[in-house]
Amino acid sequence: MRAVELVRVGHPVLRVLRAALAGNWGYVLAVAGSIVTFFLLFQPWITATGPGGRVRANAFGRLDGSTNYLTAWSQIKSPTAHITGLWALFASAALVVSIAAVLIHLRIRSDLLDRMATVATVAAAVFVLATMVYLNSKGTDLKDMTTRRWDLGGQVGTLMAWAFGNGQLVMPGMREVGYSSASLTPAAIFASITSIGSALACVSQRILGRRSRKN
C-alpha cells in the first residue's frame, strides 16, 4: 500500500527519476546492456573437448578444465594454451566508463558526458568483438590441450584409460572416435549482441537528442 501511495501522490524521488528518464530510454537500454555484457565477460567464452579432457576459458583468459593425462608419458606433451585478457580488460574498462558517464549525464545533462558515453559504449562493443575473434583464434591451442598423441607414451596412456573405463581403445576400422573440437559459448555470442545493442541504443539516443535540441 505504501508503494502505491507513493506512486499516486508523486513522491519527489519518483518525480526526479521520471524526469531523468523522460526521453532517454536509449541510455537506459545502453546501461542495462552494458551491465549484462560486463558480467558475461566472466563466463566461459570458449570450450574445447577431446579424448584428453575438457578445457574452457573466459574472456580474461582464465582456464578451467580437467584431463586424464593421456600424454603424461608421451614425448610430445600437451602444451598449455596462453591466452591474454588484454582485450577483455579494455572492454571492461570501456563498459565501466560508459555506464558511469550515462548515469552522471542523466543527472547533470552534460554534452561532454553524452559524447563520452557514446564513444565508450561503441568502444566497448569493438573490444568485445575483438575479444571474441581473439579467443576464437585460440581454439587450436585449446584443442591441443585435449588431444591424444600417437607415440609409444600416448598409446600407453590410451590403453590405460580404456582399461580403467576412462576412454575408448582406438583400433583401426573397428570403431568411430571423436576428434578434439573447440567452439565459442552462448555467453560470448550473447555478449557481442548486448554490446552492439548498447552501442546502437546510445548512438541513437544521442542523435535524437541533438535533433530535438536543434528543433
Rank of each mutant, 00 (worst) to 15 (best):
A3Q: 14
A3C: 09
V4M: 14
R8W: 07
V9N: 06
G10A: 03
G10N: 01
R18Y: 07
A19Q: 04
A20W: 02
L21V: 10
N24M: 08
G26D: 08
Y27R: 14
A30C: 08
V31D: 05
G33Y: 08
F38Y: 13
I46Q: 06
G50P: 10
P51L: 04
G52W: 03
G53Y: 06
G53A: 02
V55M: 11
V55D: 05
F60V: 07
G61T: 02
R62T: 12
D64K: 12
D64S: 15
D64R: 13
S66Y: 10
T71C: 14
A72F: 06
W73P: 00
S74P: 04
Q75S: 15
I76N: 14
K77I: 04
T80K: 15
A81I: 04
A81H: 09
L89E: 12
F90K: 01
A91P: 04
A93D: 08
V96Y: 09
V96P: 06
I99T: 08
I99L: 01
H105A: 12
I108V: 14
L112V: 12
R115D: 12
M116Q: 05
V119E: 03
V119C: 03
V122F: 14
A123C: 08
V126H: 06
F127Y: 12
L129K: 09
A130S: 13
A130D: 11
A130P: 00
T131V: 01
M132L: 09
N136E: 11
S137G: 08
T140I: 03
M145I: 01
T147G: 08
G157F: 05
G157S: 06
A161Q: 01
W162I: 00
W162A: 15
F164H: 11
G165Y: 07
G167R: 05
Q168V: 11
M171E: 13
P172A: 11
G173Y: 06
S181F: 06
A188H: 05
S192E: 04
T194C: 13
S195R: 03
S198C: 01
A201I: 01
Q205P: 01
S212N: 09
S212T: 04
R213G: 01
N215M: 12
